[in-house]
Amino acid sequence: MTEITAKPLPRLDGPEAPFWAGLREGEIRVQHCVACGTPRFPASRFCPECHSDRAEWRAVEPRGEVESHCTFHKCYFPGFVGDMPYTVIQVRLDCGLRFFSNIADGGRPATGQRVAAVFEPATADVVLLKFAPEDGA
């Protein structure tokens, strides 16, 4: 049985493919409803606000605020052994969308802290969305 030492990777060929392509190009690209303009993430066929099925992918401002965090002391993934303990954050971008992520370079987050996106290459095909404190705070 092979040992898994790599970190888990996202699926690139599913409905989020344009999101992952956007990260590779240094943008946070999400669906916007053509009818009412509301952005949404994760991808879905219908707008949860107005139920329109017409959407287009556009970039949003890559800035926001840390809304919550938790720090893993128990190592569930062998690929994270070198990062223990590590912190997961929930970020709300200024456009209102939420993402789970990490502080790039493993810094300590604080709820309410302003952050900006960092586009972190993980493999040849995958760039992950991470965040760093704005103004290097």
């Binding site: 888990p8 893993f72 992520s101 992950l128």
Partner: peptide, 8 residues
Amino acid sequence: SPPYGLTA
């Protein structure tokens, strides 16, 4: 969200 280590 396993790529960011959020699990369980």
